[in-house]
Write a protein that binds this DNA or RNA. Structure first.
Length: 643
RNA sequence: GCCGCCGUAGCUCAGUGGUAGAGCGCGCCCUUGGUAAGGGCGAGGCCGAAAGUUCAAUUCUUUCCGGCGGCACCA
């Protein structure tokens, strides 16, 4: 007798082992029809899995949260079957589920073309119509390897030979088509449905290593219902409208051109945004006890040799020559900050010393990595280095994380992904020092109570780091903030302080940035607000627009008045109807319009219209100016702290 | 850097082996209109660059440059 517990707490008793499918059928015929898989003791399994001993069982249907995962996984397999039917000789490699969809990597001499996607999609739908049963088989490892080798699937054979010895080799049979897969899968291809779409074609290295062959990757998206698919596609269209490169052009914020690849030409409006953000951060770090410095951009190679950059970061550095020497454009500010620290004798009483710089750094990024403001070759970091004693690391980390969270909240970011990146292969310093640095950072981040994910091998060459990731409009994550623990650089560059014990010690250095690079952060910020910036950041805060030319003089005086109060104002005196002006400035995302006509001019009032709000307010000019002036103040972190 | 796609007016895009078109924007004129597009006229292009095929190339081929989507690399 086998006792099975159902999700509602009830139990059923089986006389003998039974498959998940039969088990579902015993409960209700309708359930059997809807069943896609089973969950046994919380583990997702094929519907054919035998229930052999007492356990908790849940029948997974299209309504279950897991359904979409199964569907995406099967979509990948059905796509691979379709591809191999249409393009014989193509090898299938791996095809996992990803956020919102799936992909499969293929090896084929001929390239796939965009037009092939439609054909493949059509064939996938045929395979769904065929409703091929999907069954699981366990094969002998050697047999499996020789089978895949025989049919020319050398990548599959390689995967099997690399599987851990104790892992069974499970093969899924889908009609006449076979694939190595861990599973689980749907009971048949018909259950997949047709709410999928192939979206893009891309190259991808075998096993993610650029030394390996490049495969052809086909991406797709798949959903439980057609409605979900449509919603997702619509969301992507909307996201495209928020793309910072598009808004940058439409809103006249910045441009880029090929003569200065990866570098930004900031226009007046974009640069206003920049200044507002920079001033805000400057004020926040001043209040948090930082000093601010400015260091050279072009520095002799000798210093980079000492710091280790010449050895570990050389390929990313731009260089320049004089008669005798090679100079490099700084890719980081840290060595320069150590030079300032080294001026005069420092005591432990000077620590922690928090040295900030809006440092302009250049890195020779690979051309394929460049991406609008998000990945540039010339960037300005809101950088700072905290020189401290080892026992101050935890407190400094906690303070930094508090500051960072408060800043992110002020700027409208609530979802932040935190990664802990430990020692990379290419690194400086002994393992013992890395042990200490990683340990110190781990202690500190845990003391700060931060949830984080591990990112193995992704640390900086001089120390482990915390990465704070923000998400762009179409769901790509970008590292913005960071905190890095460095036990090596100060000592390497000869920095020391006199400790309480009277002896000289090398300080620990925390490299940290909140925004990361101003370029990238502004890119993210533009997308996050869809260009509808809060008043304090908006490049144009008010447009004073006239109804008829009778009000031109009054409009000019209103604008002067607002300017005198520190607001960023433009007038619109053009010979256009008010409807036209309103539409144009609304599309341009100007947060406030003041409409003035004869009446306002006579009464010294304005008619205030907020972006996206149909109603208007009639206010005296001074009330309106005071109102906007109050709203236009930059946040100070006080509000976000209480929330 | 690697793979695929793309490059025509300021922007979004049509188009053709016989040197080009639309909408929006821009300029001028008419219109002075009270909350998301009033009307008319006009200017604007070395069809990314170079080479090749051809009587003839923006169109076909090759190479290069740049952009886009990924991969790899990274703030």
């Amino acid at each position: 007798m086998i006792t099975v517990t159902l999700p509602d707490g009830s139990t059923r008793h089986l006389q003998s082992p039974q498959s998940g499918a039969d088990f579902a059928a015993d409960i209700a015929k309708s359930l059997a029809k809807k069943a896609l898989a089973v969950k046994i003791n919380g583990e997702l399994r094929d519907l054919s899995t035998l229930i052999e001993s007492a356990c908790a069982v849940e029948i997974v249907t299209a309504d279950s949260a897991e359904a979409v995962e199964l569907i995406r996984h099967d979509a990948a397999h059905v796509m691979a079957e379709a591809v191999q039917e249409l393009f014989p000789g193509t090898q299938a490699t791996i095809g996992p589920v990803i956020e919102n969809g799936f992909f499969y990597d293929f090896a084929r001499d001929e390239p796939f073309h965009e037009a092939d996607l439609e054909k493949i999609e059509a064939r996938m739908k045929k395979i769904v119509d065929r409703n091929e049963p999907i069954t699981r088989e366990i094969w002998d490892r050697t047999q499996a390897i020789s089978y895949f080798e025989k049919i020319g699937e050398k990548y599959k054979a390689e995967i099997i030979s690399d599987l851990p010895a104790d892992e069974p080799v499970s093969i899924y049979r889908q009609g006449d088509w076979l694939d190595l897969c861990r599973g689980p899968h749907l009971p048949s291809t018909g259950k997949l449905g047709k709410a999928f779409k192939l979206t893009k074609l891309a190259g991808a290295y075998w096993r993610g290593d650029s030394k390996n062959a490049m495969l052809q990757r086909i991406y797709g998206t798949a959903w439980v219902t057609d409605k979900d698919l449509k919603a997702h596609l619509h969301m992507l269209e909307e996201a495209e409208k928020r793309d910072h490169r598009r808004l940058g052009r439409e809103m006249d914020l910045f441009h880029m051109q090929e003569e200065a690849q990866g570098m930004v030409f900031w226009h007046d409006k974009g640069w206003t945004l920049w200044r507002m953000l920079e001033n805000y951060i400057r004020e926040r770090i001043r209040a948090a006890g930082y000093t601010e410095v400015r260091t050279p951009i072009l520095i002799d190679r000798k210093l980079w040799e000492q710091s280790g950059h010449w050895e570990k970061f050389r390929e990313h550095m731009f260089t320049s020559e004089t008669e005798n020497d090679i100079f490099a454009l700084k890719p980081m500010n840290c060595p320069a900050h150590v030079q300032i620290f080294k001026q005069g004798i420092k005591s432990y009483r000077d620590l922690p010393l928090r040295m900030a710089e809006f440092g302009c750094c250049h890195r020779n990024e690979p051309s394929g990595a460049l991406h609008g403001l998000m990945r540039v070759r010339s960037m300005t970091q809101d950088d700072a280095h905290i020189f401290c004693e080892e026992n101050q690391i935890t407190q400094e980390t906690i303070s930094f994380i508090e500051l960072l969270q408060s800043v992110y909240a002020d700027l409208g970011f609530n979802e932040v992904k935190v990664m802990f990146a430990d020692r990379p292969d290419m690194r400086m310093g002994s393992d013992a020092v890395w042990d200490r640095a990683e340990g110190a950072l781990k202690t500190a981040v845990e003391a700060a109570g931060l949830d984080y994910e591990l990112s193995p091998g992704e640390g900086a060459f001089y120390g482990p780091k915390l990465e704070f990731h923000l998400r762009d409009a179409i769901g790509r994550d970008w590292q913005c903030g960071t905190l890095q623990v460095d036990f090596g650089t100060p000592g390497r560059l000869g920095a020391s302080y006199v400790g309480e014990d009277g002896a000289r010690h090398a300080p620990v250095m925390l490299h940290r940035a909140i925004l990361g690079s101003l370029e990238r952060f502004l890119g993210i910020l533009i997308e996050n607000y869809s260009g509808k910036f809060p008043l304090w950041l908006a490049p144009i805060q008010v447009v004073v627009a006239t109804i008829t030319s009778d009000a031109d003089e009054y409009a000019k005086s209103v604008a002067e008045d607002l300017k005198a109060k520190g607001l960023r104002v433009e007038t619109d005196l053009r010979n256009e109807k008010i409807n036209y002006k309103i539409r144009e400035h609304s599309v341009a995302k100007v947060p406030n319009m003041m409409v003035v006509g004869k009446r306002e001019a006579e009464e010294d009032t304005v008619c205030l219209r907020r972006l996206g709000v149909k109603d208007q307010q009639f206010l005296s000019l001074s009330d309106a100016a005071n109102l906007l002036q109050g709203e236009a103040r930059a946040p100070t972190g006080q509000l976000s702290k209480g929330e």
